[in-house]
Amino acid sequence: MTSRKGLLLAGGTGSRLWPITLGISKQLLPLYDKPMIYYPLSVLMLAGIREICIITTPEDQPQFRRLLGDGSQWGLDLHYIIQPRPDGLAQAYLLAEDWLAGAPSAMVLGDNIFHGDGLARLLARADARPHGTVFGYRVRDPERYGVLGFDAAGRVTSITEKPIEPASPFAVTGLYFLDGDAPARARAVRPSNRGELEITSLLEMYLGDGLLEVETLGRGYAWLDTGTHAALLDAGNFVRTLEDRQGMQTGCPEEIAFQQGWIDTPALLAQAARFGKTDYGAYLATLAAPQGGYDQMPPGDIRSDTCL
Score class of each variant (00 low, 15 high):
270 A>D: 11
277 K>L: 13
36 M>E: 09
11 G>K: 00
46 L>T: 07
48 G>T: 07
263 I>D: 00
128 A>W: 08
262 W>R: 02
135 F>Y: 15
43 V>R: 00
164 I>N: 10
246 Q>I: 09
32 Y>E: 12
76 L>M: 09
129 R>E: 10
118 G>A: 13
234 D>V: 13
171 A>E: 04
133 T>Q: 06
31 L>P: 08
55 I>G: 01
176 Y>R: 10
74 W>N: 00
74 W>S: 00
41 L>E: 02
303 R>D: 07
35 P>S: 08
271 Q>N: 14
214 V>H: 07
180 G>P: 15
172 V>E: 01
215 E>Y: 08
161 E>A: 11
296 Q>G: 06
49 I>F: 00
278 T>G: 09
114 F>L: 13
196 E>W: 12
81 I>D: 06
307 C>Y: 01
210 G>P: 01
107 M>D: 03
100 L>R: 00
68 L>F: 07
189 V>G: 01
285 A>L: 03
12 G>L: 02
170 F>Y: 14
113 I>A: 04
106 A>R: 05
278 T>Y: 02
130 P>V: 13
14 G>H: 03
307 C>R: 02
237 N>P: 11
225 D>L: 05
6 G>Q: 01
36 M>I: 11
161 E>G: 09
245 R>I: 10
89 L>V: 15
295 D>F: 05
126 A>V: 13
120 A>T: 14
121 R>W: 08
241 T>G: 10
176 Y>I: 11
151 D>A: 13
190 R>S: 13
70 D>V: 05
204 E>G: 05
154 G>L: 08
46 L>P: 00
295 D>K: 11
161 E>T: 14
202 L>Y: 08
78 L>F: 06
263 I>P: 01
135 F>S: 04
21 T>D: 05
184 A>R: 15
198 E>L: 15
203 L>E: 03
230 A>D: 12
26 K>L: 04
194 R>C: 03
184 A>N: 12
277 K>Y: 06
243 E>R: 11
2 T>S: 13
225 D>H: 15
182 A>D: 03
86 P>T: 07
71 G>T: 10
181 D>A: 14
90 A>D: 04
284 L>F: 02
45 M>K: 01
194 R>Y: 12
126 A>P: 03
90 A>W: 05
75 G>D: 03
155 R>T: 10
35 P>E: 04
116 G>P: 10
172 V>R: 03
298 P>M: 10
